[in-house]
């Protein structure tokens, strides 16, 4: 049976090895400062007692005020699990990338970037993955409907229909950060 790591004890050892890294502790969960994220996770991975060599999952939650990047780390030999959380700003979400430590983070960070818009610094190939390059906004954000495309909730209209609800047509939308789509602008 997978045990949940005693996060408090781990936080103490982590605090000794990497001072100032731990922001908060909850049962089975460490909240880390993003400046120390890489060092702290490297410690957690290489420390023989925690031995968290397997990055089970990496995702993010939009808390409206900030983003939580949630990382599930796992030790296969000790069979225990730890949740690591890092906060990212809501306006300018940037988090250091874990790809240098776990290659398994590669696609998951791309996915989070694609859908949530969090930039992972140091990621070797941070591109959109599911959505096309010109897709406006990041759909998993809670405020996606108020994002540059000015999409409204409810069923969208088809591209040839004019009106505020028209979907952006692939390729005609603005690049991320570019000018917003003009409502009603059909090709």
């Amino acid at each position: 049976m997978t045990s949940i790591l005693d996060a408090t004890a781990l936080a103490d050892r982590l605090g000794a090895a990497c001072p100032g890294a731990v922001a908060a502790v909850a049962p089975g969960e460490l909240r880390l400062h993003r400046e120390h994220l890489i060092d702290a996770v490297r410690f957690l991975r290489d420390d023989p007692e925690s031995d968290l060599v397997f990055l089970s999952g990496l995702t993010a939650v939009d808390r409206e005020t900030h983003f939580d990047v949630v990382v599930h780390l796992q030790s296969l030999d000790h069979n225990h699990l730890l949740t690591v959380k890092v906060e990212a700003d809501h306006d300018e979400p940037v988090v250091p990338s874990l790809t240098a430590l776990y290659r398994g983070a590669h696609l998951q960070e791309r996915e989070v970037f694609d859908l949530m818009g969090i930039r992972f610094e140091g990621h070797p190939d941070l591109r959109r993955m599911f959505l096309w390059d010109g897709f406006p906004g990041y759909p998993l954000r809670k405020d996606f409907l108020g994002m540059p495309g000015q999409l409204k909730a409810g069923l969208p209209g088809f591209p040839h229909e004019s009106g505020d609800n028209a979907w952006p047509v692939p390729g005609t939308g603005p690049r991320p950060g570019g000018a917003p789509i003009v409502p009603g602008g059909s090709p």
């Binding site: 089970s56 999952g57 995702t59 939650v61 939009d62 599930h72 290659r103 398994g104 590669h106 696609l107 998951q108 996915e111």
Partner: peptide, 16 residues
Amino acid sequence: PYRFHCRAPSLINLTA
């Protein structure tokens, strides 16, 4: 659900 995420093995197995 406030957030619903699926750790998809097919995707992550493609990492390698």
